[in-house]
Write a protein that binds this DNA or RNA. Structure first.
Lengths: 350, 350
DNA sequence: CTGTTAGCGCATTCAG
DNA sequence: CTGAATGCGCTAACAG
């Protein structure tokens, strides 16, 4: 085993590639202890004497040691990485949730691996497979609907899984979200209560975004129950944009029998409509009322301010991450399905 | 050495934990080849006979094999992970860049590890250390300014590094961004050309965001060169929000000698100001002009539409990732420092 | 509290 | 074109 550790020609003949990187063993040698002791001093300091801990810390400092998390992950099958799988990074909703997740995870020393499915469940299935290849400590994904293979694989995986955005009866492991149907029903109730009669639902990307469809269904069903005109739907294929909001307002006003209120599937569309109304001199809410969904800060500053269903997105992220972390810390949560609820913000637009 | 591999009591006594997970060796056994051959069939199919390739593929399919990227990473010191380090996830600019990066990376089979520094260079240094522990294939970070240790470590690291957002003389390895001073100067030029005399710069979070300060410096310097009143600055500690824009407009109008134009350090602030002006009946741009920086879609729909400096953020992300990928593919880029430039969008607000 | 031993799952030598 | 040996850097099991 060639003990000539002196003379140090750095040409490590046998090593795959000499990164010159300081390893645990280097620290161990420096501190005069066994490698495993260094490992313990670093990961579970309470199982090591103060003396040793101090020596190890000094050695770490002196050599500039940085743990190789990959190696640790291989050995312990857990990498302190949490994949977060969302449908899209161009949609504000997800961004804010992701933000909450990231903050919470990072402050607990976990890293977030972010991936997007583009609303494609097959792509999601593939991504889940891929990210599981990183031996993550847990997984966060979006929605309650997944390919059966995903559900099965994650269930038997045995590590914490949190599904976000949606609230329902059944989840893989844990969930935090809102119930889309209730959301839609609430807005129908509110508008009906304000005396509106012909309410139009305008949405974008609904083909792919089934949660938007759920809101629509709740909205429609409630209208039906109330004996009001139901089923007025304006649907756009593209993802949400101010432009689509503009177009929707235009289309609504051109209808033979125009609606007296439009509930948009998100605040982006509603904002576009509001600004366009302003530009054209269409009076809101007198001529037509406008409401949204999200509770973006912007809505409060529009003229008139936007009536919208607000969901605590950042908090949803924080809670999702917290549940995950709690489980990783060995706690058994009292509640594994969390309904984050929502809030109707009354603006001047309806 | 206990050769009794027969009899298969699944109680793997010696294994750390039996995840029941299918490994490369399982596939090899199934296909009747050596493990290394499976590895080659999967990673470098051209170095394997068609026959073997087919057998391996079949075995992979049959067993549902998913590669353990951690193990692969340990062995080959490269994990197909790209850490992306940005100052904040609550700022739209970064989100869009991140989006571009993510799309590009993911379509090339790489995963993004996203972390944020909260504009703290020490935190950045610590994060760089941490993420290097994942043996990433490359790194993307924000700005050209870093702690010396970060620069040194990344330089000698030997893998591709891209710095985004900023353009300057010197970078660690590669960079894609814009030059803040030029941005500021351009807007000063534009406003001066339109005949404005007293221009105020209003910014938020400038203490921490040195790139915003660079824009301010460029703006001020150019005004000085033009012999105009320079140095009018309204600074808010908080991060950008519509609210701050509102406050800034109010403060500006209350100044003993109010400015005739305000250039905001981003479109969020400018939008807040514009909407507030609308609410109060302050005429824009006659009474006071308003401009921004970013080129958010929203600006186009405001009344009046917003004059702003637009930067192709998504494209910046795409280019950053592409440069990185090109290098990983062994190409030598012709240009390692890329100035993405910008675009002055003329709206009605100035 | 500390050390010994073995091996996580794969890819890199080097031989055939 | 294929295979055998070896080790990436670290930690789970046992001892002591």
């Amino acid at each position: 085993m060639d003990n000539r550790s002196t003379g140090g020609e750095p040409r490590g003949r046998k090593r795959h590639r000499d990164k010159g990187r300081v390893t645990l063993s280097d620290v161990a040698r420096e501190a005069g202890v066994a490698p495993i002791t260094v490992s313990r001093a670093l990961n579970t300091p309470q199982r090591v004497s103060k003396q040793v801990k101090a020596r190890v810390d000094a050695a770490v400092e002196a050599l500039g040691y940085v743990p190789n998390l990959i190696a640790g992950g291989l050995a312990s099958a857990g990498t302190r990485v949490i994949p977060v799988i969302v449908p899209s990074l161009s949609i504000l909703t997800f961004i804010e949730v992701v933000h909450g997740i990231q903050q919470t995870l990072e402050s607990a020393g976990y890293q977030m691996l972010l991936a997007s499915t583009d609303f494609d469940l097959d792509r999601e299935a593939q991504l889940v497979n891929t990210v599981l290849g990183y031996s993550p400590s847990g997984v966060i994904l979006t929605g309650l609907r997944h390919r059966p293979a995903v559900i099965e694989r994650l269930r038997e995986w045995g590590r914490p899984v949190v599904e976000i955005m949606e609230h329902g009866d059944d989840c893989i492991d844990m969930s935090v979200g809102v119930d889309g149907h209730t959301l839609g029903r609430s807005m129908a109730d509110y508008l009906a209560g304000r005396g509106y009669q012909r309410m139009l639902f305008a949405g974008s990307n609904m083909e792919r975004d089934y949660r938007a469809r759920q809101r629509w269904q709740g909205f429609r069903d409630r209208l039906t129950e109330l004996g009001l005109e139901a089923g007025l739907l304006l649907e756009y294929e593209q993802p949400a944009s101010y432009r689509i909001g503009v177009e929707a307002l235009d289309a609504a006003l051109k209808m033979p029998e125009p609606p007296d209120a439009i509930h948009f599937s998100n605040d982006i569309l509603a904002t576009g409509a509001l600004l366009e109304a302003q530009r054209r001199g269409v009076r809101i809410p007198e001529q037509i009322a406008v409401t949204g969904y999200l509770g973006l800060e912007l809505g409060e500053f529009l003229n008139p301010s936007l009536t919208t269903l607000s969901v605590a997105r950042m908090q949803m992220g924080v809670e999702a991450a917290s549940m995950l972390l709690a489980r990783l810390a060995g706690e058994t949560p009292t509640q594994s399905r969390r309904n984050i609820g929502f809030n109707l913000i009354e603006g001047g637009s309806a």
